[in-house]
Each structure stands twice: as structure tokens, then as C-alpha cells.
Design a protein around this nucleic acid. Sequence first.
RNA 1: GCGGGAGUUGCCAAGCCUGGUCAAAGGCGCAGGGCUUAGGACCCUGUCUUUUAGGAGUUCGUGGGUUCAAAUCCCACCUCCCGCACCA
Length: 959
Amino acid sequence: MNVMDWIQMEAKWRRRWDEMRQFESNPDGRKKFFVTVAYPYPNSPQHIGHGRTYTLADVHARFMRMRGYNVLFPMGFHYTGTPILGMARRVQENDKGIIDAFRTIYKVPDKAIREFAEPVKIADYFHREIKSGMIEMGYSIDWRREFTTIDPFYNKFIEWQFRKLREGGLVVQGTHPVGWCPKDQNPVSQHDTLGDVEPSFTEYVVIKFRLGDRILPTATLRPETIFGVTNIWINPAVTYEVVRVDGEEWIVSPQCATKLAFLNKKVERTGKITGLELVGKTVHIPQRHGEIPILPADFVSSDNGTGVVMSVPAHAPFDYQALEDLKKDGISYPGLPPLSEVRPIPIIETAGYGEIPARDVIARLGIENQRSPKLEEATKELYSKEFYGGRLKQNTDRFAGRSVAEAKEEVKKWILDSGDADILYELNENPVRCRCGTECVVKLLDNQWFLDYSNPQWKKNVHSWINEMKILPEEIRNEFDHVVDWLKERACARQHGLGTNLPWDKNWIIESLSDSVIYMAYYTISKFANSGDITASSITDSFFDYIFLEKGDAQTVSSESKIPPEILDLMKKEFQYYYPVNARHSGRDLVPNHLTFFIFNHVAIFPKKYWPEGIVVNGSVLMDGKKMSKSMGNIIPLRDAIRSHGADPIRLAILISAELLQDADFNQEAVHGIRTKLESMMEESSRFKSEKVGSLEQEDRWIVSRLQQLIDRVTNSIQKMRLREALHHLLYEFDSDIQWYLRRSEAKGRHDHAGVLREVLSTRVSMLSPFAPYVSEEMWSRLGNPGLASQSAWPLPDTVKIDHLSIQSEALLRSALDDIRNIVKVTKISPKNITIYTAASWKAKAYQKILSRVLEGDINIGGMIKALIADRETEEIKKDPDFVKKMVNDILSEPEQERKSKASIGPVDETKILCELASLASAEYEVGIQIFSESDKDKYDPKNKARTARPYKPAILIE
RNA sequence: GCGGGAGUUGCCAAGCCUGGUCAAAGGCGCAGGGCUUAGGACCCUGUCUUUUAGGAGUUCGUGGGUUCAAAUCCCACCUCCCGCACCA
């Protein structure tokens, strides 16, 4: 079957589903199940990786639908955010890079690209693209409820959400640092910078050393090392500026003066002073009340921090080395104190390092002077080791004995509170340039709005709800709790981007991770907006209060919102029917943010009965074992993949390669293998047309029994969302059962087994339907079933159909056959005669007695022998007491289930069962098979083998 | 450091939750055979050691423990990978 046929086959069934509108869900008398997935951000086509979460959710939805639930699986599109804006701006500027990317990687037609100067056009284009892909993948989505986050009605909804949060005191205001272009007067994100640099920054603590009336500020990442400061470093070659900062007179590098201006400080340049002039003077250390000298060092850069550095030679490799260099150089500066007096002050104790850790690292790395590039590495190593493993020594005031990690924040707060410190932000990559060419800075934004995720009561409620939620896989629950603990205030609005304006301050736009946390509720009413029942402009908060919180009365709300009361009532009922969300599916990268916010916001806004019931988290998708990324060029757009493989093979390839939390590895071979497998299953389906099922023979009862076990296993696996496991059972493990069944019935020369097989295969196809919906429909119909596989009821295991006798019989046949094959292999003889001896009946009785004892937990062999000898039926045991031990071992080496199964059927007539061997073995060996019981008087037994026969382990003679 | 995940027979990778049918699925590689003008593709057989009777021995990161029985449960240790934010 070629790909075109596949695609047409899939299209055929898609049309059928469409005609039947079977994925459109409306409230009815059934129990509901509400599945949602994080909606996509349409700034590029979706690739295989995106497909994973959606496919998992779709399988979940289809499974629950077949289980009889009224399943709602909707989809929306998240237009909110800044990246699309950046892309649009680049198109406006005719940026070749992005236009080429659209053209060659995303295959966007030129005509469309020309419109991309307008951000919404980009979103609309990829929205359509992604939606088509979802439809082609066979996702069972109710598209009547689709929306985007810039729809006016949605904006109203988000405004309502934010007013609710604010009423609850959960929205607070504060300052917030951002990357900023001074020319554009705008925050910059990655997409706004030359070379797509993320404008990330680090917070430094500025410690103010006093030089007479002036202040010499130093920026540090390690405020706790203030206790180990021995001197100040200054670059003698730099001309510093004297600046009035909020009433104080600071000496800083010119670059620093510029930076300070963006950090909410009044900055006024009043003079200049060279580094050289400062060398040799002394400054006062805050908190420690001592005087230390200013020394020269050329590693000090005016670009970094304040251009002034506090020196902690015991713990900072740069400082240690600069001090050594200075001692070696012997260059004299006027007023310089004797350098021998400047000694490192160790303040941190860390396992694996001596008294002066900086010296140790420098020696180990063979660093010779302060221009050595290895100093960076040394600094990094020591910083991290001391941060995580270091402890402050006795000379650190009240912080003595604390770990560095703990003390860092406390020392920072301590100095800040005393007024001897300040905060400075420094871009990590210097310089970062805006697309306009201007060098970016860090700006402290005033009046930034935050969601106060640090609110203790809120946290407490979320914790207790997480405890009650159904979270899959279970391992991830801890992670949620942990995230809730460390979450603090989060900026929830920004100054540009698509989205909803903050209702009480229209200069701000609500940020994307904050306007996407309760939208699942919106799906229950978006249908009405889409069908024209609602005019967004007349919607007020009272409308949402009425629908979601049962506040107010229909008449008032109706007159305000201009929505007829009966429609209002329908909407409210719809919400109350579908809410809460039963399963929220998402990638694991969203655990620390979106998924946790999702719980937080539901807890804050809705009554408890509407809090989300479950979350399902999945890992990502690798491409041939490697992470997918644009730069690696190994991203496969989903629609391309569908065109070259068909949707079902892709669905299965993604699902089968890993369990939930693991990373799934997608590769061509896997998809190819699966397609071959599905094709052979389809062919198989055509072979077994419906046929009347006569009376069941043993192997029929066996395959039907196995089918019941399969149903049980697959159902259990899916309920735990262990879809890989379910598919393994369904696709591969059950195959060997079918092979055996065919072999058996063919060996017997049967022609009436198609009917049984058709029923078995139909049940299997039914179970395959959530995973591979298209081929399942095809197979379902080829097998001659009416209706659709996707509308068949999920099979229930019928324990009555489990026939232990046939299970054990078939197992006996198989193991006897294996034994024969084994013997032939080891002895390398070509068999002419095969003789089988089954155990004497007293052995079978003894076996059952031993079995029941073992099942009771008694494995005392001596006791068993006594009891068996005492019994007339089994007294023959005394001839071979060792036999008991062998049987106990046989029994013990089997799982509990098998033991019970054997006990339930009692002694079996092995001779009768093994008769079937003749037909089975003849295909392989062309020899006659004779079967005797050990107790037959006139048996053929030249080698005296018969006596070794045990129950379920016949003796075999091959000649 | 905190949180999470992993270490299986030449490689990739199942099995572990729920102990026994586990010398341990499947794929790749390798060896032999078939098919073929040849190659490729495909099919069959083998692939820890040992064994001319279905067996025995030694294996699942390391070391202990529990158990009649441990890849699987418990404890300790070693190694590797991922996340730690205001970004969708």
C-alpha cells in the first residue's frame, strides 16, 4: 500500500466522522469527561514534538468516549505573547533571515509572507496551518468551541479573571527589572535583539565603601564575602566619574553611571577622577568598621559593575592572583601601604579545599597571572562549590556556622537594610543590541503588576488540592508541591504584545502565562459566542459571575448582557455540566509554570467543586535520539510527516517509543516498521469474513480466554495512561497468541475457525481504535462489522470466558513442543521416532496435593512426604521421595496466578491433550509420535525414560 | 544545593510499579543458509559460558539485606542526564 492510498483511506474515514459529527459534544444524561490540552502558540507550524501531547489527549478522549462517557475535547489558539510581534517587526524591516526561514523551513507561500508585517496575520496563518494538521492527525476535537485569545469575548473573560484576582488581593504592584532599549523606549525580548540574544541579566549587590564624604561602590554576586574583604581594586588607567546618586556622591565608571540612570535613580555627573588618583587611599568598610587600602589591578573592567571591585583574595581567584601579581611587579604607587600587610582573610570552609581556597584552585589549574583565561573557570568552580557546600567561619559575625547558600540572602538583606548597599542589574551578555542598533540596558520598571503566588494562604490551598488531585504519572506530584513552595510574585503584565489589556490600567497587557490558566471554563461557553448568540461589547462581569459563580439573577444579567435568559441558562448549565476539567494534558516543561498556575488560579477563582480533577504530564520527543531544534535542522513539521507516512503510523510511533514521562524517540525506521505492521494487520482483516461460529474447540476456547486477559491488561494500562504498554500488549504480544492459534487450527486441518478469529480480531481492532483511529475503521469494516470502530463500545473482559483447562492444555502442548525442539537441537540427531510418556495418575494426585499445600504457604518437604505416604492414593511416592522436591520446585518457579489456575482445574488427562502433538510436530519433523502413560503395562520404553515423567512435564524419548 | 529521571546481555532498548512462565521481548549489528547475474531488499537459523537429552553455571551500576525465590522489594554508595523562572 503506497502513501497516497493511506492518505486517501484516512481522508475517507475522516469524512465519515465529519458527517456523523461524532466529536461534537453537548450536555446530556451521560456522565461527562472533559479533556483539555495546552493550546498552541501559532508562531510556527507544529512539529512532531507538539504532536505528542495532543495525541495522548486524543487517545484519552477516544478511550473515554468508547467507555460510554460524553467526552468534550476542545481546542483554542493562544495569540497572546511577544514573539509574534518581534517576527512581524523583522518582516517589516525586510529581514532576510526570517523571510528565508518562513519560505524554506516553514514553506509559507510568498503571498502570505508579504502580509506578515502585521502580527495577527502571522498568527492567523499558523493557526490555520496547525488546525489542519490536527484534523489530519485525526484528533477528535469539537471545533465549534474554537477561539483565539484576542477574540473580544475572550478579552472580556480575562478582564473578569483579573478583577476577581484583584478583589482577592492576589494582584500586587512593585518594581521589576527588564531588558530595555533606550532609543525605542521599550522592553526587549529575544526576538527584538540583533542575533536573537536573550537579554537576560543578573542581580548584583552594590556595597558602598566610604572614601571620606564620597562613596566607592562595588558590585558583587557574593555579598557574604564582605567579611573577607582585604582591599579595593581599581583600574589606574580608567577615568572614573563623580556622580550624585539620590543625594550621595558616588565614584563609578562612566558606563556604570549610564546604567544607574535606568534603575530609578536620579543621576547627575559632577566631575571626573582618574583611577590613579585613588590608588593608595583607604576606604571604610561598612558593617566591619575597618579601613582598607585601594590597590591597582588591570583585570578590573569599567564595563562591569561599577568599575570598582571589592577584593576577597581568600575566596576569589581573580583577587588572589591580582594581589600576587602586585607583589611580584614591585611597581610603586605613591601612598601604597606595604603589601605584606594585605593578607587573605578566609571566611568560608568547604570540604576539599584548604585554608585559602582561591590559592588551591589557582595552583591546581596552573594559573600564572591575572590575564590568564583560566581564571574564569577557577572563579566558576569555587563559586559553585562554596555556594553549595561552603559554611561560614567564626569570623562572620551572626552568620557564623551558616551555609553559604542560606547566608547569602540574609547578608544581602542585612546590608541593604542598613543602607550600606544597593542593587545593580547587569546584562549577562555584553553588549546586547536592539534591532535598531542601540545597546540595551536593564531598566527597573515602576508599578509593575504581579500575581502574588507567594501568598501563604493561597499556597496552602493549592498544596492541599494537589494532594487530592489525580496526577499521572504519580512521580510528578512531588514536583508540583515543590514548585508551589518556591513560587513567588510573578510579573503578570507587560507593555507590548498581543493580548488583553489590564482592565484597570490599559497601558498594560496581560502576559501570556497569566491569561491562559482558566480558559478551560471558556470552552463551555465559546460555542455560543461562535454561533452569534453573544455581543462581546455588552458583556460585563455580572455575566461571568452568573455563569461561573452562580451569582446574580438571570433577568438582570440578561438585560445587561443582551442575552436572552434561556440562552444564559443553557450556558450556565453547560458550564456546570462539563466543569471541572477531568484531565489536563501537557508537556513536562510546563510543570513549573503553566500547570501550577492553572491550579493556583482555579483555586483562587472557582468554588472547590470546579477545581481541576486531574493532570497528565508527558515528556518531550527526540529526533533520532537528539533534541529537536531549529538550529540542528532536525525539526519535522507534523503535516510533512503525515504526508510521507500517514497519520496513524505517526501516532503510534510517538506513543510506542516511550512511557509518559520519558522522552520519546521518533525515527523513520520506527514509523516504517509500524506502517508495515498495520498494513499486514489490514490484509489479515480481509481474510476473515464473518462466518457462523459453531461449537468451540479447545484452541477456540483458549484464544477467547487469552482475549479476555488482553482486554483486562490493555484497559488497565490505558487507565494509567501507560499507552506504550497498552500498545505492546495489543500489537505485539497478542500476535504470538494468534500465531499459535493459527498453527493449531491449521495443523488440525480446520476450515471453520474464521468466525472465531473474526470476533477476536474485531475486539482487538476496537481496542486499537483510540490509538490508530483510521486503520481501525478500515479493519473494522473489512472484518464485516457494522458501524464505526470509534463508536463501538470498549470491550469488557468476561471472566466466564476464561477457560483455565484450555489455557493449561495449550501451555502443556507448547512446552512439550519446546522440549522436543530443545533435545533435537542439543543432540543434533534427526528424529525418526518420538515417544512421549505422561506421568502416572498417582503423580498427578500427589501434584495437586503438593500444590494446595504450597498455595497455603507450606513448603515443608519432609512433612509433605509423610502426608503423601500416609495416603493410599499417593503412597507410591516412597519409591522416589526426591520426586516431591522436584515438584515443589516446579510449582515454586511459577507465578501465583499459574498455580491457582492449575489448582482450579485439578488433575488433567495429559495423554488426551498431548495427542494433538502428532499433528503439530509432523509439520516440523515428519515422524510418528507415540504417547504412553507411565503406568501403561505394555508401553515401548527401551531407555526407561517413562519414570522421569512429572505432571505438566512429560518424559520424552527421541530416536 | 533543591527537585526529577536514568544505569539491563556488542549497541539501542523492553522488563522493575504488581518478586517466580527471566539467560531476560523487540530492533540494530554480527555469523550461517535461502532468494538473486551481483548488490540491495526480503525470508529462515544462530548470537553469555558450557552441554550429543529437554540440563548446569555466571549475568541486569557497586556493596549489603529481606525472601523458598530478586533485574524486580529495602538500605547504603558510585556514575550520568534534565529543570531551577518571569519565556512561550
